[in-house]
Design a protein around this nucleic acid. Structure first.
Lengths: 146, 146
DNA sequence: CTTTTTTAGTTGACTTTGTCAACTAATTGC
DNA sequence: GCAATTAGTTGACAAAGTCAACTAAAAAAG
């Protein structure tokens, strides 16, 4: 692989780290921290998800998650249920309150992105989409192998 | 802007957050933490950079940076010099030792990327490059406006 | 079976990362 | 020359992440 390719991809990573940082920064004036938001996202989209699945998906420390779930529990955002099939595992679901709060957060994030995209000509959005899809497709092949 | 565009871009952000996380994770078994590496990068590429420039570029708290520079100083990785033109500002440079250590870190990061790309067919690297350049170009327009 | 080993999650102790506000010293604007 | 601003430092603290020891359950080995 040509050195330029390596360098350019690293440059893109730095650039995109900045973009994501900006987006996160403004979003997370909310009542949730960034990792909290990511965990809520996973639970919302996979009802009765196992703690271990969140850990694997988000590459997260299990102790850290366990404590985060405690605080969600205290706030009545989630319910935890021992698996009937495997008494070591815990299924996690959002309560009605948890769903509502996540949806609020999610909408704020969506609005933010919409505002950002509104600064661009319409066709740029579509272009972004295509380029991102292509990158995602290529990198998916490597992801498990890094 | 179509809702799909918004959702897809957010999906890409989640995906790419994961990629960057993986890369960082394996790289930073080094002696530097991630923000330290980013700061060293800036100093390496902009000799005699001002603290304020690093703060602006990396969107970083000045207190946090100030302390980080202290530890670099203790390790003799950088030198700090008051600006002659503005006695409040400090110019930061890498010492020979600092350059050497950064280069080591940089090479490790480069190697990691090379290994990752080696998993892909040659043409995928070039494709990635093009898509990334396009995204960078489009998003650069918005960056200051988020 | 029942003993060992592995696995899922919890808990404790700690480090790193990041934030905020008060402060010092220098500079700029009036 | 004085008030307001600015660059960076310091103190105090909160958020994020790591690591290892531990508990309880399940799976594997005998």
């Amino acid at each position: 692989m040509k050195p330029t390719v390596v360098e350019e991809i690293r440059a893109f990573n730095r650039f995109y780290t900045g973009i994501i940082g900006l987006l996160d920064q403004y979003l997370l004036k909310s009542e949730f921290t960034l990792p909290e938001a990511r965990v809520l996202y996973e639970i919302y989209h996979h009802d009765a998800i196992l703690a271990g699945e969140i850990i694997a998906t988000l590459n997260m420390d299990k102790g850290y998650l366990s404590r985060m779930l405690d605080t969600f529990d205290q706030k009545r955002l989630i319910s935890r249920n021992r698996s009937a099939r495997d008494g070591r595992s815990v299924h996690i679901s959002l309560t009605a309150k948890g769903k509502k709060e996540f949806e609020k957060l999610n909408q704020a994030s969506r609005d933010q992105m919409k505002n950002m995209l509104a600064l661009l000509p319409e066709e740029d959005g579509d272009k972004l989409l295509l380029h991102m899809a292509a990158i995602k497709q290529i990198l998916s092949k490597t992801q498990k192998l890094i």
